[in-house]
């Protein structure tokens, strides 16, 4: 166990704890802020795993953009929830119509999944970590993206464009319909 290992364990613990808080926080705004911390934690994990470019991208894309638009979404859509939890508002017909949801099944499923995965991981024979890692990951990444993966790369950019247009169209249509 080196110092880096301890650092990794600490970062992983923070990440998992804040992920847990995302799920259980009563106020949605708190959940969003915890989500931001989770993203930071993941960025830290990336950094420790030698993926420095991805760590930077993680901070930019997730912490910078995704968290922000989620907070915007919260402010635009659920103003009453900002004031606090509204535990039973509108739960009359709904919760009875969705009986499976609040039962034990989701919990069992999630725990079952995590348990099976951890068990599988522990059973496996894994390669030991290589001693030295290329520090030139942006270059490696760029070369892979623009040579072998150039078509997926182009497709991904089209996906982004379509999502952009779609998001605008969805948000705009209602506006003009009013």
């Amino acid at each position: 166990m080196t110092v880096t290992d301890w650092v990794f364990l600490a970062v992983a613990a923070v990440t998992l704890f804040s992920a847990y808080r995302v799920v259980v926080s009563r106020k949605i705004m708190h959940a969003a802020l915890w989500l931001g911390l989770t993203f930071f934690g993941v960025a830290g994990i990336f950094l420790l795993l030698g993926a420095d470019f991805l760590a930077a991208a993680q901070v930019l894309v997730y912490v910078g953009a995704v968290t922000t638009i989620i907070i915007f979404g919260i402010m635009l859509s659920t103003p009453e929830e900002l004031r606090g939890p509204s535990p039973e508002a509108g739960s009359d017909a709904a919760s009875s119509a969705a009986p499976t949801r609040r039962s034990f099944l989701p919990l069992v499923t999630a725990i079952g999944f995590a348990a099976v995965m951890v068990a599988l991981v522990n059973r496996g024979e894994w390669p030991s970590p290589p001693g030295s890692v290329s520090t030139d990951t942006p270059r490696l990444l760029g070369e892979a993206l623009f040579t072998r993966f150039v078509i997926p790369f182009e497709v991904a950019s089209v996906v982004l464009l379509v999502a952009l247009v779609g998001a605008i169209a969805l948000a705009l249509k209602e506006e003009s319909g009013q």
Partner: peptide, 19 residues
């Protein structure tokens, strides 16, 4: 870092379960 890959994968699995 000398930790085994399984530690990292376990962290990932737990986070997946939470999600």
């Amino acid at each position: 870092m000398t930790l085994s890959l399984s530690v990292v994968l376990a962290v990932s699995a737990l986070m997946f379960g939470l999600g």
